[in-house]
Simulated assay, not measured.
Amino acid sequence: MTAADQDFYASVPISDDFLRLSDPAEFTALPNDWVVGVADIVDSTGEMARGRYKTVNMVGAAVISGAINALGGKEFPYVFGGDGAAFAVSQADVGSARDTLARLRSWAETEFAMPLRAALVPMADIRKAGRDLRVARYAPSAGVDYAMFSGGGLAWAEAQMKAGHNMVAPADTDAQPDLTGLSCRWSNSRARHGQIVSLVIQPTSEANEGDFGQLSRSVLAASEALDRAGHPVPANGPPMGWPPPGIDIDAHVARAGRNLFLQKLRLLAENLFIGSLFWTGLRMGEFEPGHYKRMVSRNADFRKFDDGLKMTLDCDAKTLARITEILEKAQEQGLIRYGLHAQSEAMMTCFVPSAMRDDHVHFVDGASGGYAQAAARMRGFHGFDGTNQG
């Protein structure tokens, strides 16, 4: 492995124009000796049917926060998928990635009785199977950027994982991943213009990249008519209440083997203090609550290219009808499969290395199943009447 391969991701250009990333030429191929990590929750649809939406999102986001902490701040591409996540690392970081995934599998089972599967798939295997994986970087603000993926490699790697290949075995039951900075203290953001629509669009094998790029531009152009392009989180930040929703989940995440009840009490006190700063707007040293909340909204990943296009939109009925019309036509032509799920609120799961900087990341999903429900509703080419929106 060359130094250039190891530092590959840091050299990928960063764009602040999301529409531009519908052009396949904006993506750069991953080095052949890199490895793709994939993880998702077994039977996430069943878990959500039991009302465990926030827990599903938290475990999915834990894959990313655990990998970021394990790699010590090194830049690498990752993407949040609602009920799981994916990332790619160089050969130098495969050991850390494997250890982290093993710990996460044990932790998810121990803390939440939620089975997590995980795999590490070599890029060479992906290309041998006739797929590829290319990345781009999108910056919604000056503080943070997110990886975008294309080429079909992620979907293939996930299918391999679900078939039982390249699996990472769970660690011992008392193993703990480092999840410092992971939390879910914000309240849900209610739809202000209609419904929160979670949308998953995937190209078929019949579509070339140009076809899918053109389709993506049409969908994005329609969403641009929405307020702030459909951003589901208010510009001044999401609401915050006390006690915060998901305090039990946060306690499980942060306790690291400590007493759960005492950890919950500590978090309640901590969140009451933090909430008082947001409610009053009082500064504490360099921390300015108003600025932080605005950056939370700006940094949110409400749309992404993830071997397809995923969006969580605050969407009015007219725009939703327009988007659905575009998608139905493309599906009839055999170019895509798609699924959508409508709900009244959006939720957010956060990774905050430091509240004093603007590089905190915020993963957005629909609050009643979001991307996972949309993917479960992914339809074939026959029998869809346009009403199955949840």
Rank of each mutant, 00 (worst) to 15 (best):
D40P: 14
D40M: 05
I41T: 08
V42M: 04
V42H: 08
V42F: 02
V42E: 15
V42T: 15
V42L: 12
D43A: 13
D43K: 07
D43F: 00
D43I: 00
S44G: 09
T45D: 06
G46E: 10
G46Y: 03
E47W: 08
M48S: 03
M48Y: 02
M48I: 15
A49G: 13
A49P: 00
R50N: 13
R52T: 04
R52N: 14
Y53K: 01
Y53A: 13
Y53V: 15
V56S: 13
V56I: 05
N57V: 02
N57M: 15
N57W: 01
M58K: 00
M58N: 05
V59W: 03
G60L: 03
G60Y: 01
G60C: 04
G60T: 02
A61I: 05
A62Y: 04
A62D: 04
V63M: 14
V63T: 12
I64F: 06
I64M: 07
I64G: 05
I64H: 07
S65Y: 00
S65G: 05
G66T: 06
G66Y: 04
A67H: 07
A67W: 02
A67R: 02
I68Q: 13
I68R: 15
N69R: 15
N69V: 12
A70N: 06
A70Y: 01
L71S: 11
L71R: 11
L71I: 12
G73M: 10
G73D: 07
K74T: 14
P77L: 10
Y78R: 04
V79Y: 00
F80K: 11
F80H: 10
F80M: 11
G81S: 09
G82I: 04
G82E: 04
G82W: 03
D83R: 06
G84E: 01
G84R: 06
G84K: 01
G84P: 12
G84S: 08
G84W: 02
A85T: 08
A86W: 02
A86H: 06
A86P: 01
A86V: 10
F87D: 03
A88N: 09
A88H: 08
A88L: 07
